[in-house]
Amino acid sequence: MATALENANLLSRAILTTQKLRISVSKTFNHMKDGIKVSQDEHGAPKSFASQLQEDLFLINESFIELEKLTMAVRRQREAETIGNTGALSMDPVTDKTPLYPKALETYKWATRLREHSAHSQAFLNNSSIKRSSGSGGSPAKRRKTAPTNLNISTQAVDNLVMNVNRQFHDVKITKIQLNPTVLQVYVSRTLQAIIVLRGLLIERVLIRAHHENTLNDDGTLDLWTASKYEVFQKITEHATAASLRYYLPTMQDLSFRSFMHWLNSFSKLFSTPCRLCGKYIKDNLPPTWRCFRTVEPYHECCRP
């Protein structure tokens, strides 16, 4: 420990000396660059540039020698003393061949830094987390408990729900077109079709297309990505995605799905119901594509309350 303290003292002095050295070097260069003012020394003789330079160089030399002395004085410290039992590793006499201990120290430092970094980022992310559902409002411990259960929904439960919704809404025809992950195809009257990807019972993605548009790609695979070619259905896809987030209830997934279907069902008379506010069918070449989330009344996008 004594050597460590001593070394620390020496190092701090060495730092000071380095600073001094730097100052004198930069002063010398400044004098060389700018020249010196003609001043008089104590005997009245004018100070020449050469003598000034000599003086500066002397100062540099002095601090340099001091620094050298200090570096010589710093004794090589045995790193083993800092970290407990791992020190035994450094006892290996052939450290050059097996640099185990320095590597271990490096790793230790790296791990410490990583931990610090993640702690900082966690604190930062916690401050700016997105709260868009009632579920995430609670304590973090509670959230952690409920989250994994969300996905453990049996296919039977999905089938039951689909059957119930089919029975509840006459204009809606739901068919399951893919098992894992569950993809539902929903025909709403003769107006539109929706492709719904489920995760558990939660809606993961909604895509609205015209009733007569294709669901499959040319090679027979399911097309989950191509947007509808019609502006009206592109717009409704946007609104449907918003609605799926609006009705997102991780604690009551059943209700969440039902409310979404209720909202979607309101599009069965998309082309034949005028806007509730302006009483017109068309605005910006689109029918009323927006539905109130509570009353499911039709509005144009720019007419919504």
């Binding site: 015209a210 009733h211 019609y230 259905f233 082309f271």
Partner: peptide, 9 residues
């Protein structure tokens, strides 16, 4: 174009 049933639109 999006509708195919004339009664609707």
């Amino acid at each position: 174009t999006p509708c195919v049933i004339i009664q609707d639109c």
